[in-house]
Amino acid sequence: MPDQPKHPGTDCSETLAAELRSLVSRLKRNMRAQSDHGDLTVTQIAVLLRLEREGPASVSELARAEGIRTQSMGTAIAPLEAAGWIVGTPDPGDGRRTILSLTNAGRAWIDEGRSARQDWLSRIIRARLSGAEQEQILAAVAILARLVDE
Protein backbone atom coordinates (compact mmCIF):
# COMPACT_ATOMS: atom_id res chain seq x y z
CA MET A 1 0.00 0.00 0.00
CA PRO A 2 1.66 3.26 -1.08
CA ASP A 3 0.29 5.70 1.52
CA GLN A 4 1.20 4.11 4.84
CA PRO A 5 0.43 6.31 7.85
CA LYS A 6 3.51 8.12 9.10
CA HIS A 7 2.58 7.66 12.76
CA PRO A 8 1.30 4.47 14.38
CA GLY A 9 -2.40 4.68 15.13
CA THR A 10 -3.05 7.23 12.37
CA ASP A 11 -6.36 6.64 10.59
CA CYS A 12 -5.68 5.55 7.03
CA SER A 13 -9.19 4.23 6.32
CA GLU A 14 -9.73 6.39 3.21
CA THR A 15 -6.48 5.26 1.60
CA LEU A 16 -7.05 1.67 2.66
CA ALA A 17 -10.59 1.69 1.25
CA ALA A 18 -9.40 3.07 -2.11
CA GLU A 19 -6.51 0.60 -2.36
CA LEU A 20 -8.68 -2.34 -1.35
CA ARG A 21 -11.45 -1.40 -3.80
CA SER A 22 -8.95 -1.14 -6.63
CA LEU A 23 -7.25 -4.41 -5.73
CA VAL A 24 -10.52 -6.33 -5.45
CA SER A 25 -11.63 -4.96 -8.84
CA ARG A 26 -8.39 -6.12 -10.48
CA LEU A 27 -8.60 -9.51 -8.80
CA LYS A 28 -12.21 -9.97 -9.95
CA ARG A 29 -11.28 -8.99 -13.51
CA ASN A 30 -8.35 -11.44 -13.54
CA MET A 31 -10.48 -14.23 -12.11
CA ARG A 32 -13.28 -13.62 -14.61
CA ALA A 33 -10.73 -13.98 -17.41
CA GLN A 34 -9.91 -17.50 -16.18
CA SER A 35 -13.31 -19.01 -16.95
CA ASP A 36 -15.17 -18.94 -20.22
CA HIS A 37 -18.44 -17.07 -19.90
CA GLY A 38 -19.04 -17.25 -23.63
CA ASP A 39 -21.59 -14.70 -24.73
CA LEU A 40 -23.40 -14.54 -21.39
CA THR A 41 -24.33 -11.13 -20.04
CA VAL A 42 -23.71 -10.01 -16.47
CA THR A 43 -27.44 -10.45 -15.81
CA GLN A 44 -27.45 -14.01 -17.15
CA ILE A 45 -24.50 -14.94 -14.96
CA ALA A 46 -26.20 -13.29 -11.98
CA VAL A 47 -29.37 -15.31 -12.65
CA LEU A 48 -27.47 -18.60 -12.71
CA LEU A 49 -25.63 -17.76 -9.50
CA ARG A 50 -28.80 -16.53 -7.78
CA LEU A 51 -30.67 -19.72 -8.68
CA GLU A 52 -27.77 -21.75 -7.35
CA ARG A 53 -27.52 -19.75 -4.13
CA GLU A 54 -31.21 -19.08 -3.38
CA GLY A 55 -33.01 -21.85 -5.24
CA PRO A 56 -35.93 -21.74 -7.68
CA ALA A 57 -37.57 -18.38 -8.45
CA SER A 58 -40.07 -16.82 -10.82
CA VAL A 59 -39.09 -14.44 -13.61
CA SER A 60 -40.57 -11.52 -11.70
CA GLU A 61 -38.66 -12.44 -8.52
CA LEU A 62 -35.41 -12.63 -10.49
CA ALA A 63 -36.15 -9.31 -12.20
CA ARG A 64 -36.86 -7.62 -8.89
CA ALA A 65 -33.67 -9.06 -7.35
CA GLU A 66 -31.56 -7.83 -10.29
CA GLY A 67 -33.32 -4.46 -10.51
CA ILE A 68 -34.60 -4.86 -14.07
CA ARG A 69 -38.01 -5.07 -15.78
CA THR A 70 -39.72 -8.45 -15.99
CA GLN A 71 -39.70 -8.25 -19.81
CA SER A 72 -35.94 -7.66 -19.79
CA MET A 73 -35.46 -10.65 -17.50
CA GLY A 74 -37.53 -12.77 -19.88
CA THR A 75 -35.14 -11.84 -22.68
CA ALA A 76 -32.14 -12.61 -20.47
CA ILE A 77 -33.31 -16.08 -19.42
CA ALA A 78 -34.33 -17.34 -22.87
CA PRO A 79 -30.75 -18.24 -23.90
CA LEU A 80 -30.18 -19.94 -20.53
CA GLU A 81 -33.22 -22.14 -21.12
CA ALA A 82 -32.12 -22.82 -24.70
CA ALA A 83 -28.68 -23.88 -23.44
CA GLY A 84 -30.32 -26.26 -20.96
CA TRP A 85 -28.88 -24.49 -17.91
CA ILE A 86 -32.25 -23.55 -16.42
CA VAL A 87 -35.70 -25.07 -16.73
CA GLY A 88 -39.12 -23.63 -16.06
CA THR A 89 -41.95 -25.55 -14.43
CA PRO A 90 -45.48 -24.39 -13.58
CA ASP A 91 -45.88 -22.97 -10.10
CA PRO A 92 -47.98 -25.53 -8.16
CA GLY A 93 -49.70 -22.71 -6.28
CA ASP A 94 -50.38 -20.52 -9.33
CA GLY A 95 -50.39 -22.22 -12.73
CA ARG A 96 -49.97 -18.85 -14.47
CA ARG A 97 -46.47 -18.46 -13.04
CA THR A 98 -43.37 -20.34 -14.08
CA ILE A 99 -40.72 -21.26 -11.55
CA LEU A 100 -37.16 -21.39 -12.88
CA SER A 101 -34.57 -23.81 -11.54
CA LEU A 102 -30.97 -24.58 -12.28
CA THR A 103 -30.41 -27.85 -14.18
CA ASN A 104 -27.54 -30.26 -13.64
CA ALA A 105 -25.93 -28.80 -16.77
CA GLY A 106 -26.25 -25.31 -15.25
CA ARG A 107 -24.65 -26.49 -12.02
CA ALA A 108 -21.84 -28.12 -13.99
CA TRP A 109 -21.21 -24.85 -15.89
CA ILE A 110 -20.97 -22.93 -12.60
CA ASP A 111 -18.72 -25.59 -11.04
CA GLU A 112 -16.37 -25.63 -14.05
CA GLY A 113 -15.98 -21.84 -13.89
CA ARG A 114 -15.30 -21.91 -10.15
CA SER A 115 -12.80 -24.70 -10.57
CA ALA A 116 -10.93 -22.81 -13.31
CA ARG A 117 -10.73 -19.67 -11.16
CA GLN A 118 -9.67 -21.65 -8.08
CA ASP A 119 -6.95 -23.48 -10.03
CA TRP A 120 -5.62 -20.23 -11.49
CA LEU A 121 -5.53 -18.49 -8.12
CA SER A 122 -3.86 -21.46 -6.41
CA ARG A 123 -1.19 -21.63 -9.13
CA ILE A 124 -0.49 -17.88 -8.98
CA ILE A 125 -0.24 -17.95 -5.18
CA ARG A 126 2.22 -20.87 -5.26
CA ALA A 127 4.27 -19.29 -8.05
CA ARG A 128 4.51 -15.74 -6.70
CA LEU A 129 4.33 -15.94 -2.91
CA SER A 130 6.68 -17.49 -0.39
CA GLY A 131 5.31 -19.64 2.41
CA ALA A 132 5.65 -16.70 4.81
CA GLU A 133 3.77 -14.41 2.41
CA GLN A 134 1.03 -17.01 2.04
CA GLU A 135 0.68 -17.06 5.84
CA GLN A 136 0.42 -13.24 5.85
CA ILE A 137 -2.31 -13.35 3.19
CA LEU A 138 -4.17 -16.02 5.18
CA ALA A 139 -4.12 -13.76 8.24
CA ALA A 140 -5.24 -10.78 6.14
CA VAL A 141 -8.12 -12.78 4.67
CA ALA A 142 -9.40 -13.49 8.19
CA ILE A 143 -9.32 -9.76 8.94
CA LEU A 144 -11.01 -8.90 5.63
CA ALA A 145 -13.75 -11.43 6.36
CA ARG A 146 -14.72 -9.31 9.37
CA LEU A 147 -15.47 -6.44 6.97
CA VAL A 148 -18.06 -8.43 5.05
CA ASP A 149 -19.48 -10.84 7.65
CA GLU A 150 -22.51 -9.57 9.44
Rank of each mutant, 00 (worst) to 15 (best):
V87M: 03
A57Y: 02
G84R: 03
E54F: 10
T15Q: 06
T70R: 15
I77K: 05
H37E: 11
V59K: 11
E52L: 14
N104C: 01
L51R: 11
R97P: 00
V47A: 08
N104M: 10
D39P: 00
G55H: 08
V87D: 07
E14S: 09
S60T: 15
E52P: 02
E66R: 14
R32S: 11
A76Y: 05
N30F: 02
K28W: 07
S22W: 03
E14A: 15
L80S: 03
V42P: 02
L23S: 13
D36I: 00
T41N: 05
L49S: 03
E19D: 12
T15I: 01
R26G: 08
G67Q: 05
P90H: 07
L27K: 09
R69N: 12
S25I: 08
P92F: 03
G67C: 09
I45L: 13
Q44T: 06
R29A: 09
P90A: 14
V42M: 10
L16P: 00
A17S: 05
Q71Y: 09
V24M: 10
S101G: 14
A105Y: 08
L23N: 11
R96F: 07
A17N: 01
V24C: 03
R53C: 02
S25R: 14
A57T: 07
R96W: 07
D36G: 01
T43R: 14
D36M: 01
E19R: 09
L16T: 08
L102N: 12
A76V: 06
L16M: 13
A33F: 07
L51V: 11
A76P: 11
G95C: 01
P90L: 12
T70M: 12
K28F: 10
P56F: 04
L27W: 05
G55N: 06
V87I: 11
E66V: 03
M73T: 02
S35P: 00
T15R: 01
G106R: 08
A33D: 11
I77R: 07
A82S: 13
R53Q: 13
T41E: 04
S58W: 04
E19N: 10
G38V: 02
A17D: 04
E14P: 00
L62W: 03
T41Y: 01
I99Y: 02
G55W: 05
E81V: 11
Q71G: 09
P92R: 04
Q44H: 03
I77Q: 07
L62C: 02
W85T: 04
A33W: 01
S22C: 02
L16G: 00
T89Y: 04
H37D: 13
S72C: 05
I68Y: 03
T98A: 09
L80F: 12
M31T: 08
R107E: 13
T70D: 15
S22Q: 10
R96L: 14
A33G: 05
E14Y: 02
L62D: 03
L62M: 10
A76W: 06
D39C: 04
A17I: 05
Q71P: 00
R53I: 04
Q34F: 00
L48V: 05
L20R: 11
R29L: 06
A76L: 08
L23V: 03
E66S: 11
M73E: 12
S25F: 14
S101W: 06
E61D: 12
I86E: 03
E81P: 01
I68G: 04
I45K: 09
T70S: 12
R96V: 09
N104A: 15
D36R: 04
S101E: 15
L40W: 06
L48C: 07
R21P: 00
G88D: 07
A46C: 05
R64P: 03
E81L: 08
P79E: 10
G95E: 15
